[in-house]
Design a protein around this nucleic acid. Structure first.
Lengths: 152, 152
DNA sequence: TATTGTTATACTCTATAACTATA
DNA sequence: TATAGTTATAGAGTATAACAATA
């Protein structure tokens, strides 16, 4: 039997304490998605975090840096070089907030809009690839279950 | 209505391109689990990766470093200091592999066994906490769906 | 007093290249 | 030639503290 032969040849992997853990399954699924996402966005010279920033900025006109950081779980100190990267590439602009002179509002440029649209297309294909084994129903079910975990 | 008031007060968060993405939901769920896992293991002075290593070593007697690295997705170069950490704390031992003198087999010490058992108890509680919103059926369903993504 | 953006800094994780000893 | 373990090193990502300007 082929099964027996490959079992003997393959590095045997016994069940461990990790096998029943949702946290471990989550880590492996997340790793596999991320391993495909980075190369997916590479042609646009975008990293996943930059895509996420562009998506949130477009969806939230006049959002300030603190708000962006809060939504994405990025601390304001770590956000600064990322914002600089996007402004340096003319993908977003910063404007003084007229109602709070400490704050800067963020906006996509036309180039930012165009790049985000391209990225969205690539990511849609990426999700189709990675979730090919799941039906549309399973995909929605998975989203619901993950939201239950992620919810505060 | 309370809903309307809190909607006005809360930082408004509009739906973005991220909202329908399984990859993004995966990231948030993973982050939330990890944020709880590290403090869970801290009393034992164990990080998640060290727990995973102990679990795999116990489940796979005579496993060598390369095999451990492959199973956990850790490159052999990065595994070295982790192995040193566990041996330095007398949680595992290294033995020359009689069939391949390049390789070192890994084994739990009694202290390693005992610590792994304690960690397993803490992690079981951690999973119960984080998955409180899910029924047993949902939890199993989630595991299945995640495996479909993580599978090669 | 508290908050926004900023700088500096440190620590963890991860990735690559090169070495040694064995196979 | 290829592989197991090791060393050195560089790049991300993430965390904290402190400062100036403003609230």
């Amino acid at each position: 039997m082929a099964g027996k032969i490959s079992l003997a040849i393959a590095a045997e992997r016994s069940a461990s304490l990790l096998d029943g853990l949702v946290g471990y399954a989550l880590r492996r699924a997340h790793n596999r998605m991320m391993a495909d996402l980075a190369p997916t966005l590479a042609p646009l010279e975008l990293r996943p975090v930059l895509f996420a920033m562009l998506a949130v900025i477009r969806a939230n006109p006049d959002i300030i840096q603190m708000g962006l950081g809060t939504q994405l779980g990025i601390q304001r100190a770590n956000l600064v070089p990322l914002i600089n990267e996007l402004t340096g590439r003319n993908l977003i602009t910063r404007r003084a907030d007229p109602r709070d002179r400490r704050a800067l509002t963020l906006h996509l440029t036309r180039e930012g809009e165009a790049l985000l649209d391209q990225a969205a297309t690539l990511i849609a294909e990426h999700e189709r690839r990675m979730l090919a084994r799941l039906s549309a129903t399973e995909r929605n079910r998975l989203l619901e279950l993950l939201e239950k975990i992620a919810a505060e």
